[in-house]
């Protein structure tokens, strides 16, 4: 049954691929991806099996997290990426932000869980999913998945249709409802990071796992700010620091039942 479906998918896609040569289309027909869609049920590990060398992931150690650190992380990220602040929560641009347990894990909400977990400031960010629905729906490949698992956003290409915002089950995507540059200028005493651009009005943005830093061999800004709380590393490498931590500690991931394979882990 599994094989049949895969064959069918391939056959159905061949004509489309032949005419368009789309690398994007190949991604959904890639056998490795089909395996990964089922890996939750079969205990496979895609990272180990199909062999990409890098699969970036983030660990958030909730035992070490405090309100102060959460605020510091947000502040550091907002500066690094020139994210303006809005009074209206519906206009907010959020790359990394804190949220309560109840809202972070609504589908597996356990009302009898310990009070300290309920009170923890969970840091939310883009999950850089292995099976990202936002990438599936984007009509122009403005959002795409890099071979290292990073879900990137091309602000030059985004047409602002916001289909990805509807598709993201984590609410991790923000739209530039107004001009961010104007907003930054209005903010009193706002420091601007002149090494990183702003986003134009009318495009969608989100956490980029600090691709501008990791491509230069640096750690993401949030990790650099609070290295005891945030751990960034390569999930594909079974000897990596984050894999060692994951083997030892109990971790949670958001909405696993949707099969998106989020790459952000919460250590509790």
């Amino acid at each position: 049954m599994k094989i049949d479906r895969r064959k069918f998918l391939k056959a159905a896609g061949v004509s489309a691929l032949a005419s368009l040569g789309g690398k994007g289309a190949w991604e959904i027909l890639d056998p490795g991806a089909v395996d990964a869609a089922e890996h939750g049920g079969h205990g496979h590990d895609k990272a180990k099996e199909s062999g990409p060398k890098t699969r970036w992931a983030m660990l958030v150690d909730m035992r070490a997290m405090t309100e102060e650190k959460a605020d510091k992380i947000r502040e550091v990220c907002d500066f690094a990426h020139n994210i303006p602040h809005w009074d209206d929560p519906e206009r907010e641009l959020k790359w990394i932000w804190k949220e309560e347990y109840e809202h972070v894990f609504p589908s597996s909400y356990n009302e009898y869980i310990s009070d300290d977990i309920k009170a923890m400031p969970f840091m939310l960010l883009c999950n850089h999913c292995d099976e990202p629905p936002c990438v599936r729906v984007c009509p122009v490949q403005a959002t795409f998945r890099r071979p290292d698992g990073l879900v990137a956003q091309d602000y030059h290409r985004c047409i602002g249709c916001r289909f990805c915002m509807g598709a993201c089950p984590y609410g991790s995507r923000s739209f530039n409802w107004f001009s961010a540059k104007v907003a930054l200028e209005k903010e009193e005493g706002r420091k601007i990071n002149k090494e990183f651009p702003v986003r134009t009005r009318g495009v969608v943005e989100k956490c980029n796992f600090c691709v501008e830093r990791i491509s230069l061999g640096k750690q993401p800004a949030c990790v650099e700010a609070c290295p005891d709380v945030m751990h960034f590393g390569n999930l594909a490498d079974s000897e990596s620091e984050i894999r060692k931590i994951l083997r030892k500690r109990m971790s949670l991931r958001r909405k696993l039942e949707l099969g998106t394979h989020p790459m952000v882990f919460y250590l509790v």
Binding site: N82, Y155, K181, L184, E185, I192, K194, P197, V198, R199, T200, R201
Partner: peptide, 15 residues
């Protein structure tokens, strides 16, 4: 060119 919709003039007084 739409560069300056996002990118920042390093010495500009305005963003």
């Amino acid at each position: 060119p739409y560069c300056w919709d996002c990118h920042i003039d390093p010495n500009g007084s305005k963003l």
